Simulated assay, not measured.
Amino acid sequence: MHLLNEELWFPPVSETHPSGILAVGGDLSTERLLLAYHSGIFPWFEDGEPITWWAPDWRMVLFLDDLKVSKSMRNILNRGIFKVTFNQAFKAVIANCQSVKREGQHGTWITDDMIAAYVKLHELGHAKSVEVWQNGELVGGLYGVDLGSIFCGESMFSKVSNASKVAFIHLVECLKKNNYLLLDCQVYNEHLESLGCVEIERDAFMTILNHREE
């Protein structure tokens, strides 16, 4: 595990600790965040903890053609009960992702400094959001970092049933239309698996990421 200072660099992901942690320290500057994502690394830590950078052995991803949409979900989409927009309320989306209560989770890894850093990424065109509205109210959404042909999802929220799924499905449809290679979801959870996401080895993920860079 490496300790970062002000120098703008990361060790190779092959030096990641078995826990999935590659390095600790550094900052959340735009330059460092972009270097991290382009290197297959992401930040993940709770308020009061040092900045921690991850590159786990297994990566949760969605190959876009493998998206699973249930019949009931298709019915919800066809009914048009939600309005979906892109990049219209980024700060509101990330603020909701920070504040929403999650089962089995006491705090949040989306700190105020993290919000400021990703809002700046958004203003520079590197971070994107999907918003889901119902009766004029923001009821769901997600945000992430856009690498051009890979989208790195960060977090999503839902205030009403299925709103985050609607955001996810619309994002995937948009990525497919624009010939993206992959949706990176970082770490495993059952909800993502139900939508078609799978875990792949870090080396396989890095091969896809590096192909994107060519």
Rank of each mutant, 00 (worst) to 15 (best):
E213Q: 14
R74Q: 10
N178C: 00
F45L: 02
A127M: 10
K120Y: 10
T30K: 15
R102T: 08
V145H: 06
H170L: 06
E123D: 14
W54G: 11
C152P: 02
S149P: 00
H211C: 07
K91W: 09
C185L: 09
H170M: 05
S29K: 11
I51E: 02
G153A: 09
S99D: 13
F63L: 09
V61Y: 01
W53K: 09
L182Q: 01
N78Y: 03
R59P: 03
S164N: 13
D57V: 07
L183C: 07
F86E: 15
P11W: 08
L28R: 14
L171M: 04
K176L: 13
L22I: 07
F168A: 09
E49T: 07
N189K: 11
V132C: 10
N178F: 01
A95V: 08
L138Q: 02
D113P: 06
H2Q: 13
D65F: 04
S164L: 03
L33D: 03
V24N: 03
F10D: 09
V145C: 06
V84M: 10
H122I: 00
Y188F: 15
D184I: 05
S99L: 11
I169N: 11
L183R: 10
K91C: 09
Q88P: 11
V119E: 10
Y180T: 01
L64T: 00
E46L: 02
A89L: 07
D66Q: 14
K128S: 12
L195I: 07
S19L: 01
F205I: 00
E199Q: 15
D66V: 02
I208V: 09
I115F: 00
A167Q: 06
Q88M: 15
A117W: 08
E49Y: 03
Y143G: 01
K159P: 00
S99A: 14
K71C: 10
L171F: 12
G141H: 05
E193N: 14
Y143Q: 03
Q88Y: 12
Y118W: 11
V139I: 14
P50S: 11
I76V: 12
H191E: 10
F157E: 08
S158M: 14
V13R: 06
Q98P: 03
S19P: 13
D47K: 15
R74E: 13
E190Q: 14
S99Q: 14
A23Q: 10
I169A: 02
G104D: 05
K176W: 00
V69E: 08
N135H: 14
A23N: 09
R212W: 01
V24C: 04
D146A: 05
S194P: 04
C185Y: 07
S149Y: 05
G125E: 01
W44M: 12
I76W: 06
A163L: 05
K71N: 08
T30G: 13
E46K: 07
K159A: 09
V130H: 05
V187L: 12
T207R: 15
V84Y: 04
F10I: 12
S194M: 03
N5S: 14
Y180H: 02
N210D: 07
D112F: 13
K120A: 13
L192H: 05
F168D: 01
P18N: 02
E199D: 15
S29V: 05
E15M: 12
D146M: 03
E49S: 08
I21R: 04
Y143I: 06
G80L: 06
V132E: 12
